[in-house]
Amino acid sequence: MIEARGLYSYYGKSPVLQNLTFDLNKGELLSVLGRNGVGKTTLMRSFMGLTDRLEGSLSFGGEEIAALRTADRAKLGIGYIPQGREIIPRFTVRENIVMGTWARRDGRRDMPDFVFELFPILKDFLDRRGGDLSGGQQQQLAIARALAMDPQMLILDEPTEGIQPNIVSQIHDVIVRLNREFGLTIVLVEQNVPFARRVSDRFIVMDKGRIVISGTGADLTDELAEKHLTF
């Protein structure tokens, strides 16, 4: 589903990501790990074309996307759930979810029912403003928005950062269901190593804008985590 070959990503003249090469098959879950400031979020933004420039090759579903506009990448079915949620604060919950459907190619504008099965709380809050929800509810809303576009792949950038513990486990469960039950390909930035080990088909560990280790979920040992993820 994703093939990156010698990928460089730039802010201005600085190559923030350097020479990344990795693969992700359809239906798999890829965890991206690393300390703060090593380029994980930049990699997620690079998938969406939100950095200034990409070099090298990045393909999605067999199609080269490195030169595509952000909006066109979205329409290929990449659902991006950014760090900090970034729901639209003055839109209602309903409007925020319908916003996801703008990236659909079939022109449909209805909210899929399974979203409310995954996040029943959103159904009660449909007419509240997104900005008035709690952090955890906003995160659920951000995932619901991405699901409304009927995505091929989800990008989740630290979905449980700064969220109350009871909702963290709920969001973890949803991520697992989306991957296993709905067969969605997922790229996940995660700080929680045991969770990443449990759910990942593959992982990459980044440092200073490069990939330092990659492997399958079981390879993600505590020694590795100790070496590359502690300060």
Binding site: T70, A74, K75, I88, M99, G100, A103, M149
Partner: peptide
Amino acid sequence: QNREISECYGI
């Protein structure tokens, strides 16, 4: 309200 995320949803 948020140009970047709007573009990420096809606008």
